[in-house]
Amino acid sequence: MNNRFLLPDLVRFILDTTEDLDKKEVETFVRAYFTVIEKALFEEDFVKINNLGKFSLQKVEARRSINVNTGEAFEIKAHYKLTFVPDAKLREIANKPFEHLEAIELENEQEPIKKETINPNKLTTKEDNIMEKKEKTVFVVTDKPAANEKKTAPETQKAKKGKLVAWIVFVVVMCALIVFALWKTVFTGPEIEPTITEEVVESAPVAPVVEEVTPPAPKVVDPADWETLKVVPLQKGKRLTLLALEYYGNKVFWVYIYEANRSHIKNPNKILAGTKIRIPKPDPAVINAKDPELVRIAKEKETKYRAQFSK
């Protein structure tokens, strides 16, 4: 390893490979070999040698540069450089020590982080935040060696994956236990402690439940079921948006008029004049020009329909 051989060594190697060779002959041959490459480089476009590679001269265009010491700009003149592209066979031989390695597919690294958020013993304290950070660092550390292991032995990848998951679960549980222990030490009174944890546990799930209930509500809305406020024949030149502005106070609510009349309007952009439009009675929980949130929901619907009908 890491020996630097010279021309005489090369001659020796060649003599080793084949019998009945004259040392002087081989020496002159080796010299001829390299002088021919050198000569040919200047006379021809390239020199290709089977099982070794291809030598060629490549032109490097002139470019501007700056003298690092003086800061002066100067031009690097166009020049040639020698490139050597090794033959596939030589590449293969040179890469022998790493031959067994293969490219491996990686799964998403986000998975372990998701598991962390599911952590049931999650408490909203500063200690917990610190612990979370620690957990993350632990993940990073456990991930890397696992990746290396996979690389060296791709066949046992599945077994390793199982092990990795087991490790992650183990680490999460351990961290949770440590957090819990710290929590206990902070609150010395043993009787107060359970009530507090209960409160935290109870209050934690409440918030997401409320969040989950509110957003789907407007989605369920079907203006087709609403009471009719008025039925108007669409006049020439009028559009649903103008009706919405007239009856609901904002153009974006046209989507609800459209939804109420979906049964006989195929494309809201092309409605025949005289078509009877049923204007539903506005539900203040859905249609209120003064509520920016409701306007936003209507706008979302609008963009959805726009995309649908612009095709």
């Binding site: 890491n2 490979t17 390299f34 031989i93």
Partner: peptide, 17 residues
């Protein structure tokens, strides 16, 4: 000669002409 260069490289050595 080509084989010798390959052999030198495969053993992690370098050849200087």
């Amino acid at each position: 000669l080509n084989a010798s260069i390959g052999k030198v490289l495969s053993e992690g050595d370098s050849l200087n002409i």
